[in-house]
Amino acid sequence: MRIGLITPEPGHPLLAAASALLTAAGHRVDALVPPAPGDAPRSPEADVYLLKSRTPGALAFARTLEAGGAPVVNSAEATARCQDRTLMAEIALGAGLPFAATRTVGPLGPWAAGRSLPAPVVVKSLRSRRGDLVARVDDRARLRELAQQWPQEPVVVQEYAPNNGWDHKLWAVGDRVFAALRRSELSPAGRGPARPLGRDELPPGWAALVRATGAAFALDVYGVDLIDTGGGAPLIVDVNAFPGIRGQSGAPEALAELALARARA
């Protein structure tokens, strides 16, 4: 089988380990650079493509491959859905998933002007990306500070849900679910390292919730960030297409198996 990697980081630990497994089994793995604007689109050359990139060029390339009949994991459309936090909330809530209530308010600067805050809120960039804005806001002083730093950033606002300050990072590769515990990115002390969790350490029903999320978003490789709002009641705060899944035993094997299964299908 031939597997194509659509990514700027073919040496990423997850991809590198999965590639090594596939190569050792006699398969070919190629890292691909999306064609530049104006270049002729390529016809499908691999049996399956793994899309670990969110750039417009990578998504356009993936759509061209899909139009030619090539399987892409995850699809370009599913990947794009996870970049828009307004759409993310609509899909999740429409599927009956416990997702944080989300309001889209436009550029932060104009919205924050003269705004009062009756309760803590979480302000996030509308477009999910590396280095985006995610911050807890407890008072007008903090809101003004963020508005000065990100005046034209389109944002969404979520009510802050009281929790224990830890994020449950859950990832799925096909039917396999992996998990870790890490301090919330809203924590003043910073996120710190992630601690791997066994499936038996997850509250009942959480693994099934992750799979239901993947089905709602039509994702094959994805991450779901959950917080415990008390008594094991989960709240989804983010969904990611093809996350890093670093340090999870068995994840490279699961990815290699998924790639081959999709190629054969």
Rank of each mutant, 00 (worst) to 15 (best):
M1C: 10
I3K: 00
G4C: 03
L15V: 03
A17T: 05
A18G: 11
A20Q: 13
L21C: 09
L21S: 08
L22M: 12
V29G: 13
L32F: 06
P37F: 05
P41S: 10
S43T: 13
P56E: 13
P56M: 08
F61L: 07
G68Q: 09
P71D: 07
Q83L: 15
R85A: 10
L87C: 09
L87Q: 13
A89M: 09
G94F: 02
R103L: 06
R103M: 07
G109V: 09
A119V: 06
K124Q: 10
K124A: 08
R129S: 14
L133S: 10
V137I: 14
D139L: 09
D139E: 13
R140Y: 00
Q152V: 06
Q158K: 08
N164F: 04
N164Y: 05
W166F: 15
H168V: 00
H168P: 00
K169E: 00
L170C: 01
D175K: 12
V177C: 13
A179M: 07
A180G: 12
L181P: 07
G192W: 01
A194G: 15
E201A: 15
L202Y: 11
G205C: 03
G205M: 02
A207E: 15
A208I: 00
T213C: 09
G214S: 08
A215R: 15
A216W: 04
Y222K: 03
G223E: 02
G231T: 08
V237W: 00
P243K: 10
R246F: 02
E253H: 04
L255C: 12
L258Y: 09
